[in-house]
Design a protein around this nucleic acid. Structure first.
Length: 180
DNA sequence: ACGATGATGAAC
DNA sequence: TTCATCATCGTA
């Protein structure tokens, strides 16, 4: 299981290193482990795409907390988003888990794994039924594709930053059409 | 292209 | 207390 120190490093590095790690979810008496194939980084108080750019509020204070803590929030009246806090306390940063093998999309991911806000501000731990493991998968750098983040067109200069990390060969099957 | 559906933050 | 906005998805 990944320790908090893993997340107490520069946000982009943590994001990249999360590719190939396993998200493990305990449901009932079963454990489901799925490899992470897509993440996005939200880095620091000045990142306009990050909730933390609004400052510390009831919702965002989790991002200012300890590394390795879950940040889960409700969006569009329907979906929960799963994030993991990165960087030292008081530095607001988090990584959105955007896709795992077999599940494409952050909303579907939380729906299928039954992850909701009851886990917000909780540590990743077996007692909480949700944690990450390094199972020895090594991702070569040339398999990692970087793109701008999704759905953050309002973020000014920050919208173009290459803060989205994807495992390249998983990506080419999907997305024949685009919106906009 | 758009509606579902509700929390959030800012304005009032 | 209202209002526009939103780190999405499924059906057009």
């Amino acid at each position: 299981m990944l320790k908090p120190e893993f997340f107490n490093r520069p946000t982009l590095k943590v994001a990249q290193d999360l590719l190939g790690k396993y998200l493990v979810r305990k449901m009932g008496n079963k454990e489901i482990a799925l490899m992470i194939v897509e993440v996005e980084a939200y880095d620091g108080p000045r990142d306009l795409a990050s909730h933390a750019s609004k400052g510390k509020t009831a919702r965002t204070e989790v991002m200012f907390g300890e590394p390795g803590v879950l940040y889960i929030y409700f969006i569009y009246g329907m979906y929960n988003m799963l994030n993991i806090v990165a960087g030292p306390a008081e530095y607001p940063a988090a990584i959105l888990i955007r896709g795992v093998e077999g599940i494409n999309g952050p909303g579907k991911l939380t729906r299928e794994l039954q992850i909701d806000r009851s886990l917000n501000n909780k540590k990743m731990a077996k007692v909480n039924g949700l944690w990450l493991e390094d199972r020895g998968v090594v991702i070569p750098t040339n398999k990692i594709k970087r793109t701008p983040r999704i759905g953050v067109g309002y973020a000014g200069a920050w919208k173009d930053k290459l803060y989205r990390f994807i495992l390249a060969d998983k990506e080419n099957k999907k997305e024949n059409k685009k919106r906009g």
